[in-house]
Design a binder for these strands. Structure first.
Length: 542
DNA sequence: GTTAGGG
DNA sequence: CCCTAAC
C-alpha cells in the first residue's frame, strides 16, 4: 500500500513496485523454459458451480473491457484521421514496442474448454509464447498501437481475445481501469495500472510476484519452493509470467443440472408466479408524504412563485452560485437548506429552498478528475487492500463516528445515522449482485449479502435490493432480445448489455417482470437451465 | 431482523 | 441512499 501510494505521487512516478508484473524482462529462457504443465492440471476438487461462476464473471469483465477498448480505439482512429502525424508516430513508438507477454491475460475460449484436450492446449499455449496473437481474429488489443488497421466493425467476437496489457497505452489502461472499477484514474504508472486491472479482472489481489497462472479467472500461485531466490536470480519460471485460464473442462452439463434442480424446487414450492407478480404490497402513506403534502397545500402560493426557479436551484447549486449569490448554506442532516437573495420581481426578499443533498457521482469524468487524488479507496474487488483502506479511512476520519462495520456515518438531526460517503457501484459489484440473484433468487438480499458481499461491508442488503431495482429498470428500457445485438453499441455503456440481458432473464424467472414474448418457448418447460447456459456462453457474444 | 416500496 | 410500513 505504501508503495502504491508512492506510485500515485507524480514526484515518485519512477518508483517501481518490486512485485510488479512487468518488473521482469523476458529472456530466451522464457521461450524455452519449462512449461507450466503441472499447474494446468485439473483440480477436480473444485466445486463445479464456483468455477463456472468465476469464469462467467470473468467473461463479463473481459467483454466489457474489450468493449471499452474498442471505443477508445475508435476515438483514436478519429483523432488520427484528422490529427497530427506527430501524435501518430509518438503513439506507435511509445506503445508498439511491447511484444513480450508480460501482463498477458487469459484466453477464455469456450470451444477450447469444451472440445480441445489438455495436451493440445499445452501445445497451443507454448507455441504461442512470445506472440500475443494466437489467432488473427483476436488480436484486437494487440493492434492498439496500429490504429490505422483497426477494423471498422466494432462488433468483434468477444470472449476470445487476449488482452495484452503491455501493448496498451496509458490512456487505454486508464479506460480499462475505469471499466473494471467504475472510476477514473490519473495514475501515470503503467505497472500500477496493469496490476490493478489484473487484480480487478481476476477479482483477486493475490497476484504473485513470480510466475502466476489464472485459473477460472483467479490467480493461482505456483507452489514453487524457491520463491525467495526470485528477487536475486530470476529463473525461467519466475520470468514466464504468462497468465491464462487453464483449459479446465468444467462440465456445462453438470451446471445445467444444477440449475434445473434449483428451478424445479422453485416451481414446485410456489407455482403461482403469475398471481404473485400482480399482487403488490399495499402501503399507507408515510409520514413524510403527509407532511410534504400538507406543506404544499399550506404554501401553495409560494410554491407557484418559486417553481419558476426551483429546478435550477436544486439541480445545479454551483451554477446558481455564480448567477445568484447564495446567502447562507447550512446542512440539516440529509437536506441542505439554501437561503439566497433573489430578485423576484425586484423585491429582493429571501426565498427558502429545501432540497436533498445532491451527492456526487464518481463515474462522471469531471467528478472523477476532481476526486482522482485518492486512488486508494473504492476498490471493492481487492479484499486485502480493502482492509488497508479501512485502516486508512479510520485514520482520516478519526473524529467521525465509525460503526462496527467500519462505515463512516454522521448523525442526523432526527436521531438517525446517515452514511457519510456515497459509493458508486462498480461493475464487479454489479456482476456479483447478478450472480447472487441467480443463486439465491431476487428478494433474498440478506442471503446474497452473506454469500457474495461478505467482504463488502459497506453494502447493506437494502443497497443490494435498491441496486437490483435500478438494474431491472435499466434492463427494461433496452431493446428487445432480437435487436439486442445490433443495438448494443447504442446501449448504456455503464452496464454491459450482457449483464442487463441476464438481469432481465433472472427477473423473468422470478416473475418480477412479465415474460417477454420471445422467451416464452424457451422458458416454458425445463428449459431454464438451458437459458442460463446460453447466457454464460456463446449466445450473447456471437 | 428482513423485505418492499416510495421518496 | 434514506425512510418506514409490512412482514
Amino acid at each position: 500500500m505504501e508503495v502504491e501510494d508512492l506510485l500515485e505521487d507524480d514526484k515518485n512516478e519512477k518508483v517501481e513496485d518490486a512485485g510488479q508484473i512487468v518488473g521482469c524482462k523476458p529472456t530466451e529462457d522464457t521461450l524455452f523454459g519449462k512449461p507450466h504443465v503441472e499447474v494446468l492440471n485439473d483440480k477436480p476438487g473444485l466445486p463445479q458451480s464456483d468455477t463456472f461462476e468465476a469464469a462467467a464473471d470473468y467473461n463479463a469483465r473481459l467483454e466489457y473491457i474489450e468493449e471499452v477498448l474498442q471505443k477508445v480505439k475508435q476515438e483514436e482512429r478519429l483523432r488520427l484521421t484528422c490529427g497530427s502525424p506527430n501524435y501518430t508516430s509518438a503513439y506507435v513508438n511509445g506503445d508498439g514496442k511491447g511484444s513480450d507477454e508480460h501482463g498477458r491475460l487469459p484466453v477464455i475460449d469456450e470451444k477450447l474448454q469444451s472440445n480441445v484436450s489438455l495436451q493440445e492446449n499445452h501445445v497451443n499455449e507454448n507455441g504461442s509464447l512470445g506472440d500475443c496473437l494466437k489467432h488473427p481474429d483476436k488480436s484486437v488489443e494487440s493492434e492498439s498501437s496500429d490504429a490505422l488497421c483497426t477494423t471498422s466493425n466494432p462488433d468483434f467476437s468477444l470472449l476470445k481475445g487476449d488482452i495484452c496489457l503491455d501493448n496498451l497505452s496509458i490512456r487505454e489502461l486508464r479506460e480499462c481501469f475505469k471499466a473494471t472499477f467504475g472510476r477514473d484514474t490519473t495514475v501515470k504508472d503503467k505497472s500500477w495500472l496493469k496490476r490493478r486491472i489484473a487484480m480487478g479482472l481476476t477479482n483477486s489481489c493475490d497476484i504473485p510476484a513470480s510466475s502466476f497462472i489464472i485459473k477460472e479467472g483467479k490467480f493461482v500461485e505456483e507452489s514453487s519452493p524457491n520463491v525467495e531466490g526470485m528477487s536475486t536470480a530470476p529463473t525461467a519460471e519466475t520470468l514466464n509470467i504468462e497468465c491464462r485460464v487453464s483449459p479446465t473442462t468444467y462440465s456445462l452439463e453438470n451446471k445445467d443440472l444444477h440449475h434445473s434442480e434449483d428451478m424445479e424446487l422453485d416451481h414446485g414450492s410456489e407455482g403461482q408466479h403469475d398471481e404473485r407478480a400482480a399482487v403488490k404490497r399495499v402501503r399507507k402513506p408515510t409520514r413524510r408524504y403527509i407532511e410534504e403534502l400538507s406543506e404544499v397545500e399550506s404554501r401553495e402560493y409560494v410554491q407557484k412563485v418559486v417553481s419558476l426557479n426551483k429546478n435550477t436551484i436544486s439541480d445545479s447549486i454551483s451554477a446558481n452560485s455564480i448567477a445568484r449569490p447564495i446567502k447562507k448554506v447550512y446542512s440539516d442532516g440529509g437536506r441542505t437548506v439554501i437561503t439566497r437573495l433573489d430578485s423576484l420581481g425586484g423585491s429582493g426578499f429571501q426565498v427558502p429552498c429545501v432540497s436533498r443533498v445532491r451527492r456526487s457521482r464518481p463515474r462522471k469524468d469531471v467528478v472523477g478528475l476532481v476526486f482522482a487524488l485518492p486512488e486508494k479507496d473504492q476498490n471493492p474487488s481487492v479484499t486485502v487492500t480493502d482492509e488497508v483502506e479501512k485502516t486508512l479511512e479510520q485514520k482520516q476520519t478519526a473524529s467521525d463516528n465509525v460503526s462496527d462495520d467500519n462505515t463512516a456515518v454522521v448523525p442526523t438531526t432526527k436521531g438517525g445515522m446517515r452514511r457519510k460517503h456515497h459509493r458508486a457501484w462498480t461493475l464487479v459489484e454489479v456482476i456479483k449482485l447478478v450472480e447472487g440473484v441467480s443463486k439465491c433468487g431476487a428478494g433474498k438480499w440478506s442471503e446474497i449479502k452473506k454469500l457474495s458481499f461478505s467482504s463488502y461491508s459497506y453494502r447493506t442488503s437494502v443497497d443490494l435490493k435498491d441496486k437490483w431495482r435500478n438494474l431491472l429498470k435499466a434492463s427494461l428500457v433496452q431493446t428487445p432480445v432480437d435487436e439486442g445485438i445490433s443495438s448494443r453499441k447504442h446501449a448504456s455503456i455503464s452496464i454491459p448489455a450482457q449483464i442487463l440481458l441476464r438481469v432481465r432473464e433472472l427477473a423473468e424467472m422470478h416473475a418480477q417482470i412479465p415474460p417477454s414474448s420471445h422467451g416464452q418457448g424457451k422458458l416454458g418447460g425445463g428449459g431454464v437451465g438451458e437459458s442460463m447456459h446460453e447466457m454464460s456462453s456463446s449466445t450473447v457474444c456471437s
